[in-house]
Design a protein around this nucleic acid. Structure first.
Length: 108
DNA sequence: CCACTGACGAGTG
DNA sequence: GCACTCGCCAGTG
């Protein structure tokens, strides 16, 4: 409702564009959402999502190809890894090869 | 209004 | 490759 477009809404909109089997970094999402350089804000927005959402939050990882830890410890990150593997993303040494699975957005 | 917190990134040693 | 520092900003009490 009375919440037109907060920065978070924009971030979610971008995350929703990430196709299955691909992953995007926080910085990448930030840049596309028009918040270039504010990757922290993206991570913060993800944390505020909640369990159910139309946003594929699991496809968002850090620039190192690793899954960031939530306040609940490493347990949460394992769930995320499983969700991604199920989509076809391969983890090698706890890391994802962004060269292969990194999402390549297209500018309009 | 002030202080603290937090799914990060890039740079340095 | 890892540990530490600084920068940036919104949300919460």
């Amino acid at each position: 409702m009375a919440r037109p477009e907060s920065s978070r809404t924009r971030i979610y909109d971008v995350v929703r564009r990430v196709p299955r089997g691909k992953v995007a970094t926080y910085g990448q999402i930030a840049t596309i959402a028009g918040l270039d350089g504010h990757a922290r804000q993206v991570g913060y927005a993800m944390a505020a999502i909640g369990r159910v959402s139309t946003v594929p939050w699991q496809r968002v990882i850090n620039a190192q190809g690793r899954i960031s830890m939530r306040s609940e410890g490493p347990g949460g990150s394992i769930i995320q890894q499983q969700l991604l593997e199920r989509e076809g993303v391969v983890f090698r040494g706890g890391r994802v090869d962004l060269k292969r699975f990194g999402w390549k957005p297209r500018r309009s």
